[in-house]
Computed example of a mutant assay.
Amino acid sequence: MYCTSGTTVQGAFDPLDRIADVCDKHKLWMHVDACWGGSVLFSKKHKHLMKGIDRANSVAWNPHKMLVAGLQCSAFLLKDTTNLLKQCHSASATYLFQQDKFYDVNLDIGDKSVQCSRKVDCLKLWLMWKAVGSMGLAERVDKAFIHASTAMFLVAKFHYHTCICLCGQPEFVNVCFWFIPLSLRGKEGTEDYQEKLAKVAPIIKERMMKQGTMMVGYQPLGNKVNFFRVIVLSPLLSQKDMDFFLNEIERLGKDL
Results as ranks from 00 to 15, higher is better:
residue 2 Y to H: 05
residue 3 C to V: 10
residue 6 G to L: 00
residue 6 G to K: 01
residue 8 T to K: 12
residue 13 F to Y: 14
residue 18 R to F: 13
residue 19 I to D: 02
residue 20 A to T: 08
residue 20 A to R: 05
residue 22 V to P: 08
residue 34 A to G: 02
residue 38 G to H: 02
residue 43 S to E: 01
residue 46 H to N: 08
residue 50 M to S: 11
residue 50 M to K: 09
residue 51 K to C: 10
residue 52 G to N: 12
residue 52 G to S: 12
residue 52 G to M: 12
residue 58 S to D: 00
residue 58 S to H: 00
residue 62 N to E: 14
residue 63 P to A: 03
residue 64 H to R: 08
residue 64 H to K: 07
residue 68 V to N: 13
residue 69 A to V: 13
residue 71 L to T: 03
residue 72 Q to W: 15
residue 73 C to V: 03
residue 73 C to P: 00
residue 75 A to C: 05
residue 83 N to I: 10
residue 91 A to K: 12
residue 93 A to G: 00
residue 94 T to W: 11
residue 95 Y to T: 13
residue 97 F to I: 05
residue 102 F to I: 15
residue 106 N to S: 04
residue 109 I to T: 05
residue 111 D to A: 05
residue 114 V to Q: 09
residue 116 C to A: 10
residue 116 C to I: 15
residue 118 R to Q: 14
residue 118 R to T: 14
residue 118 R to E: 13
residue 122 C to Y: 15
residue 123 L to H: 12
residue 125 L to P: 02
residue 128 M to K: 12
residue 128 M to R: 10
residue 135 M to F: 10
residue 142 D to T: 05
residue 142 D to R: 05
residue 148 A to D: 04
residue 154 L to Y: 10
residue 163 C to Y: 09
residue 164 I to M: 08
residue 165 C to T: 14
residue 166 L to I: 08
residue 166 L to S: 13
residue 168 G to Q: 12
residue 169 Q to K: 08
residue 169 Q to N: 08
residue 170 P to A: 03
residue 173 V to F: 09
residue 176 C to L: 12
residue 183 S to H: 10
residue 184 L to N: 00
residue 185 R to S: 03
residue 188 E to G: 06
residue 191 E to M: 02
residue 198 A to F: 01
residue 200 V to A: 00
residue 200 V to E: 01
residue 203 I to Y: 10
residue 205 K to A: 11
residue 207 R to N: 09
residue 207 R to H: 06
residue 214 M to W: 09
residue 216 V to T: 04
residue 216 V to K: 03
residue 217 G to Q: 11
residue 217 G to C: 07
residue 224 K to F: 12
residue 224 K to E: 11
residue 226 N to F: 09
residue 227 F to V: 06
residue 227 F to A: 04
residue 228 F to W: 09
residue 232 V to S: 08
residue 233 L to I: 14
residue 234 S to V: 07
residue 237 L to K: 12
residue 238 S to L: 13
residue 238 S to R: 14
residue 239 Q to F: 15
residue 239 Q to H: 15
residue 253 G to V: 03
residue 254 K to M: 04
residue 256 L to V: 01
